[in-house]
């Protein structure tokens, strides 16, 4: 890619990642949430890959790490749901609800948002990576 694209990417990619994390963490207060934020996080890595090539992005998150993190995200979500059994029911929101419109509120909903954000973020990146690797092996073979 050209110098302009690389420079702009270097400037913006951190901001995009940060914005994704913001969307995930404020999912219970404003529009967005785990899925939307996760997609933005994944797009920041995809952006990096488009500008600097596959190797730079894989150096940040290898495909093995991505698939492990994806499983961990899913298990975390299941764990949050199972936490409800402490209060007697599956998916029961037993943590303190807090004051509305504050960051630390809404019980286990932010936790599940974080779990979904991890899963979607690395999952989407892993899908993109798999398609790229598939394409690359085809060209070589």
């Amino acid at each position: 890619m050209s110098l302009i694209v690389k420079t702009i990417t270097r400037l913006t990619v951190g901001l995009i990642l940060l914005f994704g994390i913001y969307i995930i963490l404020h999912g219970h207060l404003s529009p967005g949430g785990g899925f939307a934020g996760g997609v933005i996080v994944a797009l920041s890595f995809v952006h990096l890959m488009l500008a600097f090539g596959k190797d730079t992005a894989v150096a940040k998150i290898s495909s093995n790490l991505a698939s492990n993190l994806e499983s961990i995200g899913a298990l975390m979500f299941l764990g949050v749901a199972l936490l409800g059994f402490l209060g007697g029911s599956f998916f029961l929101n037993i943590l303190g609800k807090g004051q509305s419109f504050k960051l630390f509120s809404a019980g286990s909903i932010p936790l599940s948002n974080i779990a979904i954000g991890i899963k979607v973020g690395v999952g989407l990146f892993a899908i993109f990576l798999a398609l790229v690797i598939l394409e690359k092996s085809k060209k070589e073979g």
């Binding site: 989407l124 899908i127 798999a130 398609l131 598939l134 394409e135 085809k138």
Partner: peptide, 24 residues
């Protein structure tokens, strides 16, 4: 609909990867 979009994303990703392998 958000759920349905996610499902659509999964199906599309799977079908595209199958299509690439078919092209192989």
């Amino acid at each position: 609909v958000l759920t349905s979009i996610i499902i659509g994303l999964g199906v599309t990703a799977l079908v595209i990867s199958i299509a690439i392998r078919i092209y192989d």
